[in-house]
Write a protein that binds this DNA or RNA. Sequence first.
DNA 1: TCTGGGGTCCTAGGACCC
DNA 2: TCTGGGGTCCTAGGACCC
Length: 433
Amino acid sequence: MLSQTSETIHGHADVNDMYCSCERALRPDLHKTPLVVLSNNDGCVIAQTKDIKDLGIEMAQPWFEVEERARARGVVAFSSNYELYANFSNRFADTLREFTPRIEVYSIDECFLDLTGIKGDLNAYGQLIKQTVREWTTLPICIGIGHSKTLAKLANKVAKKRPQFQGVCDFTSMSRAELDTLLETVDVRSVWGVGHQYEARLAKLGVLNALRLKRASPKRVRDEFGVVLERTVRELNGESLLELTETVEPSKQVMSSRSFGERVTTLSGLTEAISMHAGIASARLREQGLYANAVHCFIQNSPFDKKPPYAPGLTVALPSPTNSTLKITNAALYILKKIYGPRVYYQKAGVMLLDLVPEQGRQLDMYGYSDDDSKSDALMKALDRINGRYGRSTLRVASEGIKPAWTMRRAFKSPNYTGNPSEFPTIGERFNL
DNA sequence: TCTGGGGTCCTAGGACCC
DNA sequence: TCTGGGGTCCTAGGACCC
């Protein structure tokens, strides 16, 4: 008789208040201070420590609405510092790899782990992982374990919210009755794949908690909501339908866009911004070894400016696939001239690269791979090397300008301790001497 | 004054074909 | 004037995620 192979077991590890925890890692003096991290332009609150929630500050709330209240209560704000967070993210994932060879880096602060076949007490194993990450990286994490990714993620939310689990919640060790009793106390909105639109529609059908969704008829859910939510229902029932994806699929599109620190009305201002975005997007393309067949460029005014919405954009096909900053910038600026209208207070602009192909797959134009291309490749390699070493915009296209007025606000950025040597702290700063 | 920046997947509907 | 059925491909828009 064949022995039954063990059922799939998924783990999900997720850093608590990731951005705040990274800021705290380098500022031990702030370990007890309530923190918030702000979005680009210091616009919205995008991360906060737990104690902030008691002050009535919500995620995604505009900072200007709450700044005064927060400051009065001793809250410290940081502008987002993605270089720092990416660095800690890598350390986090590397630590997890010590415990299982198969992990999926799902986002900057989350990983799925394949725990299938791990012998012994999974709860204890989870605790060990959690403590090791804490010791090696200083980051606090929680771990959820379940028979599907959806269940593992849900278990993690439970572990985060309910102190009795001490940061690790294993659904697979619970009896069905125990699990169902617990799921009945979990909001349906906590389930991965249920956003606020679905939450509202589910509420009308009386589906308010995770247990009700688990018990919904897959067929009916498919008819009313589509195949995605049907899959969620089946995953809640322990079917593992979403596989661990260890390798990162190449991007299908690459975008760079940003709101301005202040409104821009002139073509020359937009030219600088679009040049910058074309440069960033092209560099990301080269990082992934991809080539673009089309460029999309857009500019828009603000939905908050009480003016009619104005958001022109246009896509052009490139004569042959390219990842050259120069060619992509030219295409983007060509579009910009076509779509620009005067007397508009532009708030945001961006460049999107589309129809991406890997190097092997790219079709050459009728002239094939020309001398021009190899010169361009060499130039781009040199540019990436210099910018990789000395910072993103050390070497750039002249149309980007020198120090434009519209650059985003990052008034509270922490120094780039892990990246740029010129921002390393001196011994005195580090220890408050 | 001040309101983020990326992505993915699915579906419906139109254009076009025979 | 009327006018079928089945297929593909593309795009826009809507939902979700972090």
